[in-house]
Computed example of a mutant assay.
Amino acid sequence: MSDVIKNRYEFVILFDVENGNPNGDPDAGNMPRVDPESGYGLVTDVCLKRKIRNYVETAKEDAPGWRIYVKDSVPLNRSDKEALEYLGVAGKDLKDAKKADPALDAKVRDFMCQNFFDIRTFGAVMTTFVKGNLNCGQVRGPVQLSFARSVDPILPQEITITRVAITTEADAERKGTEMGRKYIVPYALYRAEGYISANLARKTTGFSEEDLALLWQAILNMFETDHSAARGKMAVRQLIVFKHDSELGCAPAYKLFEAVKVARKPEVSVPRAYSDYTVTISEPLPEGVDCTVMG
């Protein structure tokens, strides 16, 4: 691994969807998530982290040090147990083990951070108890994401579809097609904001410059390995990164986020493409802060 990061960062992700469902809401029949008061579309931070994890898992293929802790079909207990087996305390009473070795908590945490990219990045709750002797603690990650919100209000559509494949023999005797539904957003541009703490990286997880480069790569490509009929045409359009020249930062995050203006062009009444918007970054930026635009 490379050196731990020494600079604080904030970043803005702009991504769009065309004729797809970017994040279904299970409380609303899997309709696209919407703020009911304003009509703006929402995408949860959990959804975005899942895309990032999936990209890293695909790119690194479980290489040592780059594994993913929160992944499909792998119980968390299985990964937690690895740390305790490595330290020779699996199956033992952890209270007794910690009395014998006061540094055990830190050793378990360090093992998990060194082996799992998403723990180094986002942190994790690893207090998964099995008969009282499996507990890897909690780690607060240096990288945090907000919910994404659409730049303009959205109007989700419910599309009725038909299929010729009948489910059962009984149904086949009385009908030739079956009905179904798809939920889409015709077009929306979303904005998410994120934070990276060099202080937490140094003190807790060891999030490194190499991890940071992979994170930017994963964000820019998080939809490229996730295409499906349900999610339509989704793409990250821009990643705007603010880098501070110190560990604790040189300006409040909100001032940097407010510097990024995303507006629909005046002549556009109903946006249907990224080109219907303009993106500007106000200058000058606070002293000690640099801005890089990727994508």
Rank of each mutant, 00 (worst) to 15 (best):
S2P: 05
S2D: 15
V4C: 14
I5E: 02
E10A: 09
E10T: 12
E10I: 05
V12I: 15
V12P: 06
I13R: 08
F15M: 15
D16A: 15
V17E: 04
N23E: 14
G24E: 02
P26S: 09
A28I: 09
M31K: 15
R33L: 03
D35M: 03
P36L: 06
P36D: 07
S38T: 15
G41D: 05
G41E: 07
V43N: 01
E57N: 09
E57G: 09
T58E: 13
W66E: 09
R67A: 11
S73G: 05
P75S: 09
P75V: 05
N77R: 15
E82T: 08
L84C: 15
E85A: 12
A97R: 14
K99S: 13
P102N: 09
D105V: 13
D105L: 10
V108K: 01
V108R: 09
F111W: 14
M112S: 10
C113K: 06
R120P: 01
R120D: 06
A124D: 11
T127V: 08
T128Y: 00
V130A: 07
K131R: 13
N133V: 04
L134Y: 04
C136V: 02
G137V: 00
Q138S: 09
Q138C: 00
V139R: 07
R140G: 02
Q144Y: 00
L145Y: 13
A148Q: 06
A148E: 03
S150P: 04
P156G: 00
I159Q: 08
V164F: 03
A170S: 12
A170N: 03
A172Q: 08
E173M: 13
G176D: 11
T177P: 02
G180L: 07
R181W: 08
K182W: 00
I184G: 00
V185E: 05
V185W: 10
P186S: 10
P186N: 13
A188G: 15
N199D: 13
R202G: 14
T204I: 13
L212I: 03
A213Q: 09
Q217V: 00
I219L: 10
T225R: 12
G232N: 13
G232W: 07
I240F: 01
I240N: 00
I240S: 03
V241R: 05
F242R: 03
A251D: 06
P252D: 14
K255E: 13
K261H: 10
A263W: 00
P266K: 15
P266T: 10
V268W: 14
Y274E: 03
L285V: 01
L285G: 12
P286K: 01
D290F: 01
T292E: 12
M294G: 01
